[in-house]
Amino acid sequence: MSTSARIRALADKQAIYDQMCRYIQAVDRCDLELLKSTFHHDGSVIFGIFDGNAHDFCDYDIPFIKDNLVWAYHRIANVVIELDGNRATAESYMLGNAAAALPDGNKINCPDNMRYRDVWEKRDGVWRMWKRDLVMDWNACWAYAGRSDGRFADYRVQGTRGREDLTYRMKLIP
């Protein structure tokens, strides 16, 4: 492989990885427009709780998160991307953690580990997901024990959903 081909491959893999990170930011900030921007309009999502068009999934997922989770934070890791021209396949591990409010007012903490299996396509020079499948490896729930008292209150800056989050002010999300 020539040097220019290797550089192009690295740039393409980085562009896909950047979109993976945008997806996570969109879900955690409940940013519907940003979430849709990570998918092609004719893309699909198969998540068990949803099987259909990717943009319809976005329209389902953001309200679901807002209605059912107090907060949610996700991380991706172990990203493997295989390029094939303007198409790529990828697997990434996702570790998520969310708090949900129970009807009695108590909260539960719900960590999970999943794997995303994606097909990406580059159209008009932009990489977006064309297909995303979810593999659930494990999940759990227990009583929420978050703290905001004492020393935690002195230094802790709370993340927020929406464009009020510091990440937008820092212009890290378009």
Score class of each variant (00 low, 15 high):
123 R>Y: 04
142 W>D: 13
26 A>S: 10
135 V>M: 11
85 G>W: 02
24 I>W: 01
141 C>E: 07
130 W>Y: 13
118 D>A: 09
4 S>N: 08
26 A>P: 04
25 Q>R: 15
169 R>L: 07
151 R>M: 15
63 P>I: 00
84 D>S: 04
76 I>P: 15
5 A>P: 10
137 D>E: 14
114 M>K: 14
151 R>T: 09
107 K>L: 12
81 I>Q: 13
136 M>F: 13
40 H>P: 05
71 W>Q: 12
87 R>H: 03
59 D>Y: 00
144 Y>D: 14
92 S>Q: 05
134 L>M: 14
68 N>W: 15
102 L>S: 09
26 A>N: 02
32 L>T: 00
15 A>H: 04
44 S>M: 06
168 Y>H: 08
93 Y>W: 11
60 Y>T: 07
89 T>Y: 03
28 D>Y: 06
136 M>T: 14
153 A>V: 01
31 D>C: 07
96 G>I: 11
108 I>K: 15
51 D>I: 09
119 V>Q: 06
53 N>C: 00
169 R>S: 15
36 K>N: 00
164 E>N: 12
117 R>G: 05
101 A>S: 11
169 R>K: 15
173 I>Y: 04
155 Y>M: 08
68 N>A: 04
86 N>P: 02
83 L>P: 07
97 N>Y: 10
111 P>A: 15
153 A>P: 10
134 L>W: 01
154 D>K: 13
30 C>F: 01
145 A>P: 01
22 R>K: 14
84 D>N: 10
130 W>F: 11
39 F>E: 00
122 K>T: 02
41 H>S: 06
158 Q>I: 01
79 V>H: 09
17 Y>L: 15
83 L>V: 04
65 I>K: 01
152 F>A: 14
137 D>C: 02
8 R>V: 02
159 G>R: 06
61 D>M: 13
21 C>F: 09
44 S>D: 02
15 A>T: 03
27 V>A: 14
146 G>T: 06
157 V>F: 07
163 R>W: 03
15 A>G: 09
147 R>P: 10
82 E>P: 01
28 D>T: 02
105 G>F: 04
172 L>F: 08
72 A>N: 13
163 R>A: 08
109 N>C: 13
35 L>N: 02
80 V>I: 12
19 Q>V: 05
18 D>C: 11
84 D>Q: 08
44 S>N: 01
117 R>L: 03
27 V>F: 06
71 W>K: 11
141 C>L: 10
33 E>N: 10
39 F>L: 10
104 D>I: 04
21 C>I: 14
133 D>V: 05
